[in-house]
Design a binder for these strands. Structure first.
Length: 460
DNA sequence: TTTGATT
């Protein structure tokens, strides 16, 4: 390195950053490579902070000092954004993690550069260390897997600094863990390879591997939980932006349904049948157990009676419901005067509400909450396309729905075809079971039953 | 096809 090319470079005019090419870094084989090879860094490389650098030294001057510990990937002297003045420190990344460790132990606080009165600082940059970028949250572990099993799983990706399985007070695993790697690269590699890659024995879904929440995200989560709790105590419309609108929509919707249900000869089941045809556009067939009224067409002929209509859920309640025009010109105009295609008996308030609803619900992630004992339903054999919104709408006629959740596979985002609905009282729950258990949708029949209490079927 | 999670 006697006559390094950089050594003769004039101090004037070098850019703020020095890209080290192979030829430049003097590996010795540079002459054999026709093109400049882009230096590669290890996935577990560490970015170092270098402090106590004399202002007179730029990248070229510093390079030889650090190169003796290994090949440099990037070396950048920090400069003031406005004035361009040397700030007396730099960031340094070696291609190999090992080089960084060697440089740190050899230089940090070990020697003082000319003109400085404090020793040089060489240590992992702040962004490397206390950032949460190398801590992973691991979900969907088997309940029997302990720290050792988790370590075995993550070991191939790097150095594990910390591994903790989350447990309940009684010591049973919660099926998740934290794994902290030595570097961000290792953590990323583990995410890439492991997330969704397998399903652990006893887990209900494929493995989840992601960055752990940052403090900010954690705070946010708390806030959301608080908001959810508040909502539970104030079921009436809140004077709070979207939340109020959401609740209002539900109440209006319910009122409309009640009105529909109270029509002559129409029970709640009929309302549901009409509603589901309206909202979900699945072809519904009332189960034999249900009153005949349930099987009758909705007023005006809903999508259920128009086979093959590709009605998009919740996009526009009217589109698919508009009576067939059969291509006759002018027939549309029958409905273009602001007149609803529905007979007066069908509440006009209904359609606008159901139209607005899905947007509201998707914008407002509702808190998943259990109702009191006896108020929570487990619903199976849901159509694949059913989402939370459809679930809510299906069970609203029976009472105040506290929460509705369709289970979704974390890896594929596909519905698992079952879900939960919670009411605020047991009577509503029972009514819903009576009306909806066995309800046929397409080829399936809904199974609606009380949710199993947590410690049921447990022999002492 | 069968029970809401997790920082």
């Amino acid at each position: 390195m006697a006559a390094a090319p950089g050594g003769s470079a004039p101090p004037a005019g070098p850019g703020p950053r020095l890209g080290f090419s192979t030829a430049d870094s003097g590996v010795g084989m540079s002459g054999l490579n026709p093109g400049p090879a882009v230096p590669m860094k290890d996935h577990d490389a560490i970015k170092l902070f270098v402090g106590q650098i004399p202002r007179g030294l730029d990248e070229q001057d510093l390079k030889p000092l650090f190169e003796e510990f290994g090949r440099i990937y990037e070396l950048t002297v920090l400069k003031d954004r406005l004035t361009g003045l040397h700030k007396g420190c730099a960031f340094l990344t070696y291609c190999a993690r090992d080089s960084a460790l060697k440089a740190q132990s050899a230089l940090h606080e070990q020697k003082t550069l000319p003109g400085m009165n404090r020793p040089i600082q060489v240590k992992p940059a702040a962004s490397e260390g206390r950032g949460e970028d190398r801590k992973l949250f691991v979900g969907m572990l088997g309940k029997q897997q302990g720290e050792e099993d988790v370590r075995r799983l993550f070991q191939p990706f790097g150095h594990i600094e910390e591994c903790t399985v989350l447990r309940s007070p009684d010591g049973t695993s919660k099926g998740c863990a934290f794994v902290k790697f030595g570097s961000q690269g290792e953590a990323q590699a583990a995410i890439q390879s492991l997330h969704g890659s397998r399903t652990m024995a006893g887990a209900s879904s494929s493995l989840v591997v992601k960055l752990a929440d940052t403090d900010r995200e954690r705070a946010l989560r708390r806030m959301q939980q608080m908001a959810g709790q508040l909502g539970a105590f104030h079921p009436a419309p809140l004077p709070l932006g979207a939340c109020g609108a959401y609740t209002t929509a539900i109440l209006q919707h319910q009122a409309a349904l009640l009105a529909a249900a109270q029509g002559p000869g129409l029970g709640p089941v009929a309302a549901v049948a009409a509603q589901m045809q309206h909202v979900a556009a699945f072809s519904l067939v009332a189960a034999p157990l249900l009153p005949a009224a349930a099987a009758s067409s909705p007023p005006g002929g809903g999508p259920g009676s128009l086979p093959g209509l590709p009605a998009p859920i919740g996009v526009n309640g009217f589109g698919p419901l508009t009576p067939q025009t059969n291509g006759q010109p002018g027939s549309d105009s029958l409905y273009n005067n602001g007149l609803s295609p529905y007979p007066a008996a069908y509440p006009s308030a209904y359609a606008p509400v159901s139209t607005a609803f899905p947007q509201q619900s998707s914008a407002l992630p509702q808190q998943q909450r259990e109702g009191p004992e006896g108020c929570n339903l487990f619903i199976y054999h849901l159509p694949q396309e059913f989402g939370d919104a459809e679930l809510i709408q299906t069970f609203l006629p029976f009472g105040a729905v506290v929460s509705a959740k369709v289970f979704v596979d974390r890896a594929t985002n596909q519905s698992k075809c079952f879900g939960f609905v919670s009411f605020d009282n047991p009577t509503s729950a029972q009514t819903a079971i009576q009306a909806m258990n066995g309800f046929q949708i397409g080829m399936k029949r809904l199974k609606v039953q009380l949710k199993r209490p947590k410690d049921a079927n447990r022999p002492y």
